[in-house]
Every structure is written in structure tokens, then in C-alpha cells.
């Protein structure tokens, strides 16, 4: 009898140990937060769920099953106010990944340095549009993997003019998906860019490059005298002009205070247009869905290989420039379910 008990105890021990090692949590795991959809996810981990087919529809049914990670954004400038919390979800279908980002913004800023007609002349507004960026290291990057956006942001100098974004060396690059309410959202895209090392110390954005472009993209809507727009849209109430829908500017049709978009937009064709996007501002918040192929086949893009986990960072620009934007303070991790 005792012999059987010993044997039973040994077998139970074996099972317990096997279970414990199989269920061993990752080191540095983080707490979970409740999500609006009822699912939960570790706060700094974005878990992409597998679905049949992806779209840029932010109301697609599968988002109800995707865990929501709520991440906080902080100002890059010391002493400035924190940015909004961003609810992030992700899904993938074997060929593409989609990310749904939602954040509070009391104002819809979808014009970027637009022209304003005062009844006698045009003036250029200094107002900027809302923007959002998602940043991944293309190569394995220990610094970014532990620091997140801070691993790519060189903002320690007292003079913000000397700050720059990019990598420490040329063999380490970042993939940047930059959605802008004014210029990329109307064409259903986020601009696909990459960042390397800083090329010009005097130019803080010299590390950032747009991906290759075959055709398309925006052109500046400015006349030869550079004192006003060259074109206006068929729909004067629209915040954007799509190529082919513009007509030469006719001030007789403009009322005082009319706003003319500063660019004529066309979708990017080529690697720069790899990221589809759809953003909607409603009820004081932006909801943006980004969609991209897991492997675009382009060298300047990160190849996403489930189930490998990827570090990433998210930045929110509330109608403000690079210096004033807010970013996720900790590294975020994209995982796959």
C-alpha cells in the first residue's frame, strides 16, 4: 500500500513540475488591464489576434475579440503635460497585420498649414494637423527593445533644436508608419518611412527617410508667386484635395475665412504606400486603423514573422510639431495569439 502511495506521489510530482515549467511566465511580465471589449491584455503588450480577413474598418467585428492595451503617452519635453492614453489593438490574417489605435482628442485638426482667404488675400496658417506614428526597429535592437521610443529619440540636449530621431548607427534602422490627418488619411494611407543614423547634425530630421516612391504622393498647393494656393477643390468644404479633383483657384467663389488645403494629394505608389490607413474623428476621439503586409518585400520595411515578439513605440502629435509630441514611455511589445 505504502509503495503505491509513493509511486502516486512521484507521478503527481512529475506532472506538477511539467506543468510548472510549461506554464512559466516570462520574466518582467506586466500587470493586466481591463479592456472595453471585455478582453484583457498586459498593459504594455499588444496581442494580435488571428482573423480570416483584415480591413481598415474600425468597427469590424473581430476587434471585439482583440485585447485592448491602454498605454500612456508622455511629453518628450521635460515639464510639458502628458499626452493622451492610447487604446491599441492588433489583428493579423496570415498575410497582413492591422492595428487599431484610439485616443482622446477634443479637436479634429485635419489641416496642416492651410491657406485662409480673408476676402482680399491669402495667409498661411501655422496650425498643424493631428498625427500619429508607430515605430518598430527593423533589425534586432537591444537599446530600443528595453527603452522603447527613448531608444530612438535623442532629446537630452537642453536646446530642442539639437534633438533628433534615429538610430545610433547606420546598420540599425527603424520602420516608421506615420499617419497624418491632413495628408495621409484622405488617401487612405499612412506614410511608410524609415529612420537610420543622423546624416546632417544640423538637421534633426535627417535620419528620417520616406520609403521608395514609384508615383503618387502630394504636391504643394501654391501659386507661382508663393502668396496663395494655385488650386481649390471642387468641394470647398472638404479639408483636402485629391489629384484630379482640383480646379484653378477662383477667389470669386470664396467667402471670407475660406480655408484651402495646402496640398493636392494622391496615394503613394510603391514602398511608401505600403501602409493602408483609415482614421475617423468622432465624439472627441480619433480611431485609426493601420493595415500593412507582414512582409512587404521591401528592404526598408520590417518583416513581421509571427510568433516572434516585436518591440514598438507609439507617438501622438496633437496638432503639434516633432518637439511637442508625446510618446509611449515604456517599450511596447507586439505578440501574436
Amino acid at each position: 500500500m505504502q509503495y503505491k502511495i509513493y509511486r502516486f506521489v512521484l507521478l503527481i510530482s512529475l506532472l506538477l513540475w511539467l506543468t510548472s515549467c510549461a506554464a512559466q511566465p516570462e520574466a518582467g511580465s506586466v500587470s493586466t488591464v481591463a479592456s472595453s471589449s471585455g478582453a484583457t491584455a498586459p498593459s504594455n503588450t499588444i496581442t494580435a489576434v488571428k482573423v480570416d480577413t483584415l480591413t481598415t474598418d474600425s468597427a469590424a467585428a473581430y476587434w471585439a475579440n482583440a485585447p485592448v492595451s491602454t498605454v500612456h503617452t508622455k511629453a518628450t519635453e521635460k515639464g510639458k503635460a502628458d499626452g493622451p492614453d492610447v487604446n491599441i489593438q492588433a489583428a493579423y490574417d496570415g498575410k497582413n497585420i492591422a492595428m487599431r489605435l484610439e485616443w482622446a482628442d477634443t479637436t479634429e485638426s485635419n489641416l496642416n498649414k492651410a491657406w485662409t482667404w480673408d476676402g482680399s488675400k491669402f495667409s498661411r496658417s501655422k496650425d498643424l494637423g493631428d498625427r500619429m506614428g508607430v515605430l518598430f526597429p527593423i533589425e534586432n535592437n537591444a537599446n530600443f527593445s528595453s527603452k522603447g521610443c527613448a531608444g530612438a529619440c535623442h532629446n537630452l540636449d537642453a536646446d530642442p533644436e539639437k534633438w533628433w530621431m534615429g538610430s545610433e548607427s547606420a546598420d540599425s534602422r527603424f520602420d516608421l508608419w506615420q499617419w497624418t490627418a491632413a495628408s495621409s488619411n484622405p488617401v487612405g494611407q499612412a506614410q511608410d518611412e524609415w529612420m537610420g543614423a543622423q546624416e546632417d547634425p544640423a538637421d534633426m530630421e535627417s535620419a528620417t527617410h520616406s520609403d521608395a516612391l514609384k508615383s503618387g504622393g502630394s504636391v504643394s498647393n501654391v501659386n507661382k508667386a508663393k502668396d496663395g494656393p494655385a488650386f481649390m477643390g471642387n468641394d470647398l468644404s472638404a479639408s483636402f484635395i485629391i489629384t484630379g479633383e482640383q480646379t484653378p483657384i477662383d477667389t470669386s467663389k470664396l467667402t471670407q475665412g475660406a480655408v484651402i488645403p495646402p496640398s493636392i494629394l494622391a496615394p503613394w505608389v510603391g514602398s511608401r504606400g505600403d501602409v493602408q490607413a483609415k482614421g475617423v474623428w468622432k465624439d472627441g476621439k480619433w480611431v485609426v486603423v493601420l493595415l500593412r503586409a507582414l512582409d512587404t518585400g521591401n528592404d526598408e520595411d520590417l518583416v513581421l514573422t509571427p510568433p516572434k515578439a516585436y518591440p514598438l513605440g507609439v507617438a501622438v502629435f496633437d496638432h503639434i510639431d516633432l518637439v511637442g509630441h508625446t510618446t509611449t514611455a515604456d517599450v511596447l511589445t507586439l505578440e501574436w495569439k
Binding site: 516570462e26 520574466a27 518582467g28 534586432n140 535592437n141 537591444a142 537599446n143 527593445s145 528595453s146 527603452k147 516572434k308 515578439a309 518591440p311 517599450v331 511589445t333
Partner: peptide, 16 residues
């Protein structure tokens, strides 16, 4: 599992 690459400067990491 394969965690992110080692970063000796990351003193916040909680080792296990």
C-alpha cells in the same frame, strides 16, 4: 521563448 536582445544598460529589467 526568446526575449529581446540583452541590454547591459537596462537596469530596470527584473531578472528571473
Amino acid at each position: 521563448p526568446l526575449a529581446f536582445p540583452a541590454n547591459p544598460a537596462d537596469t530596470d529589467y527584473s531578472p528571473k
